[in-house]
């Protein structure tokens, strides 16, 4: 089992690849089906953000361990314009249904740990983690 997989994101087909790889890694880790879907959905969202706002980037999927816990880490990275107002982006009103938002608060709900590192002109790195219960 590979501990790390990198999926370059440059087209909408890559989004499908990224989430399928994510589901595969989650299954190997022993995540139940429900969690596998949550993880695949979160990967789909962050990969889609890369495509939409930065045109290209990378999603890195990694097996992580902390003491007795094992889990998956998803790092979505791009060199795009960055998020100007992160506080606003993290508000639930910015829903994905309207097509306005980045779905970031949703991604946070889907996973256990969430971090976003971004600044205007410097790109964006979203890190998501989920642990096997």
């Amino acid at each position: 089992m590979a501990d790390e997989t990198r999926v370059p994101i440059a087209s909408e087909l890559d989004i499908v690849t990224a989430r399928q790889q994510g589901r595969g890694l989650a299954a190997q880790l022993g995540f139940p089906l429900g969690d596998q879907t949550l993880i695949a959905t979160a990967i789909s969202e962050v990969a889609r953000n890369i495509l939409q706002y930065a045109r290209r980037g990378e999603v890195r999927l990694e097996l992580i361990q902390q003491g007795r816990l094992r889990g998956i880490q998803v790092v979505a990275r791009d060199d795009g314009p960055g998020i100007a107002d992160i506080a606003k982006a993290m508000q639930d009103g910015y829903s994905t249904s309207g097509g306005l938002g980045l779905g970031l608060p949703g991604c946070r709900r889907l996973m256990d740990e969430f971090d976003v590192d971004t600044s205007v002109g410097k790109g964006t790195v979203v890190t998501l983690k989920k642990w096997v219960r």
């Binding site: 089906l33 429900g34 596998q36 879907t37 949550l38 695949a40 959905t41 979160a42 969202e45 639930d92 829903s95 994905t96 249904s97 779905g103 608060p105 949703g106 991604c107 709900r109 889907l110």
Partner: peptide, 15 residues
């Protein structure tokens, strides 16, 4: 819509 998918959708805030 499958149970797992429905659950993920509401977690993501989609309706």
């Amino acid at each position: 819509i499958q149970p797992n998918v429905a659950f993920a959708m509401v977690q993501l805030g989609m309706k």
